[in-house]
Computed example of a mutant assay.
Amino acid sequence: MTSKAQTRREALLLLLKNAGEPLTGGNLAQQLGVSRQIIVQDIALLRETGASIVGTSQGYVLEKSSRENLELTEEEDKANSDAAECSDDKKPFERTFKVHHDPAQTRDELETIISAGGRVVNVSISHRAYGFLSAPLAIETEEDISRFINDIESGKSAPLSTATSGYHYHLITADDEEAFETIGRALANKGYLAPLLPHEMPK
């Protein structure tokens, strides 16, 4: 049986899919009859399940890949599922980790993830005023880490996480589930792993 919250999240996805422009959290909240904070939480949960929702300065947008997924018919969906079962060994595993650290520890945090067998896809934050913001990273090697750190320092910029007092999320891919256990332990041992709040828990 579909819950009220799940129905609302499906409606949220459709609003983003059909929108011709970015939709703000306030706009979505008004259309769905809930608070803006609920929208932020729903978007965070939808992203956890694979929806490519990107936060911009103008509002939220649904990336093309997610739009196409929403338009699949049941037959196409089944065909894709069957194909996926045949190529599971080629599909990377994904997991989102919530972390917390100072800007000076950014390099060490990324090196910890890479050394444990992970690849950092993006960084995202959940901001009270701006909502859920995300930026691609594509960090897989030490060279990638150096490039990212140099880009930050040469541009005299600060990591996205400084807007949320060091709290942020990383979508990480790995070759198997065991790697995530290794990554989680490594981050926890260094004090980088942050606990999930009640509204961030998977349902």
Rank of each mutant, 00 (worst) to 15 (best):
K190E: 11
C86D: 10
L193S: 08
T182S: 12
G33N: 06
I172S: 03
G20D: 14
E48G: 06
H100V: 14
L15S: 07
L160A: 06
K17H: 15
F97G: 07
A135N: 09
D175F: 06
D77N: 10
L28P: 03
A5D: 10
N150S: 15
G117K: 07
V123Q: 12
L15G: 00
S157W: 08
Q31L: 15
A179R: 13
I39A: 04
G117V: 07
S134Q: 13
S65K: 14
D102I: 06
L137C: 09
D176A: 08
P159R: 08
L110N: 00
L197Y: 03
I38M: 11
E21H: 15
Q58W: 04
D77S: 14
K17E: 12
E142M: 11
V120W: 00
L45D: 04
T56M: 12
G50K: 07
I152Y: 00
D175C: 04
L160M: 13
L62F: 03
R107D: 11
A5P: 00
T7F: 06
S161R: 12
F132Y: 15
A83H: 09
K156D: 12
A19H: 05
R47D: 01
S154V: 05
E68S: 11
E177K: 14
L133W: 06
V120G: 01
I152W: 02
T112Y: 05
T7C: 08
K4N: 11
R9N: 12
L12G: 01
L14Y: 01
L28R: 05
Y192L: 10
E75R: 12
E85W: 10
S115W: 00
K98L: 10
E71Q: 15
S66H: 01
L137G: 01
L15C: 07
R9D: 08
E94P: 00
R185P: 00
G33T: 02
A104H: 04
V121G: 01
A138C: 08
V61Q: 11
D89P: 00
L62P: 04
K91D: 01
I183Y: 02
G155I: 06
G118K: 02
V61R: 11
L28I: 10
T2F: 11
L62H: 03
N80Y: 05
D82K: 12
E181I: 12
F93Y: 13
E178T: 09
L62W: 02
G50S: 06
R119V: 05
G26Y: 01
N189P: 00
D42Q: 09
P92K: 07
L13W: 01
I114L: 14
D82G: 08
A104Q: 13
L28A: 07
L196H: 03
Q31W: 02
Y169M: 10
P198M: 11
E48W: 06
E200S: 08
E143C: 04
V123C: 11
A194V: 00
A104F: 05
F148S: 13
V123S: 14
